[in-house]
Design a protein around this nucleic acid. Structure first.
Lengths: 113, 113
DNA sequence: CAGACATATAGCTGGTTGGCAATATATAGG
DNA sequence: CCTATATATTGCCAACCAGCTATATGTCTG
């Protein structure tokens, strides 16, 4: 099996790659230049990201253009959702969007208007 | 050194422990019973979670009551924030809170070995 | 075709890690 | 003090992993 999203993201260089892809597509060589890492190293990480469904690739002659496939990040976001209430009292409008379940000790500070 | 929040959360049993702590404090023995794992195994994970600042402990005679310290999760949340726009277009009020920079053009996908 | 260029894969290796059993530490009670 | 209970620490091991070098694959150009 391919690693879980969490395991894949545990590696800092892979998070870095995703960050670099956020503005848009990048070629492998491009990424190699940004990360201080060997080309095979980068390709290996890209494979792992690809197999985890976090990036997808477009071929163009010898170049391969990698781009974000952010769907799996939603899984992480879902895991995180029930915890948000613990540190985002200020942004509690957020909870209205993102929260849905259980009972807990709600120590909301007073909302307004 | 203590691992990063991402590394610590890569381990499924540790995420499970946090999930179990979400409703409130639990003793170690309590956790051992829920997870199918040896007591030393659980203690080891708890130590890692403690050193990562994700849980804190309260002594009570022989018992130790563990509870969530969710602050480090905010770090994860911050990393995730700029990605949210990619799957939560519906929730674009969110972006007003969380986002800051530009957008890209989605491309056709292709995937092959 | 040859050679250059871009990327992927294979093979190796040192370091890390999760699991367990054994043992240590601490506390409570008789 | 002795014993039971609860948890932590230690020591060990097999598995995994990220990085590297060397090599393979694929494509473009002349």
């Amino acid at each position: 099996m391919t690693g879980t999203t969490f395991e894949v993201l545990a590696e800092p260089n892979r998070r870095r790659i995703l960050d670099l892809l956020r503005p848009g597509e990048r070629s492998v060589g491009d990424l190699v230049r940004q990360l201080k890492m060997s080309q095979p190293g980068v390709s290996k990480h890209l494979r792992i990201l690809r197999e985890a469904g976090l990036v997808h690739v477009r071929r163009d002659a010898q170049r391969r253009w990698y781009a974000l496939s952010p769907e799996p990040l939603a899984e992480l976001d879902e895991w995180l959702a029930p915890y948000r209430r613990f540190w985002t009292d200020r942004l509690d409008a957020l909870e209205r969007y993102l929260d849905e379940n259980d009972r807990n000790t709600p120590e909301t500070k007073e909302d307004e208007r």
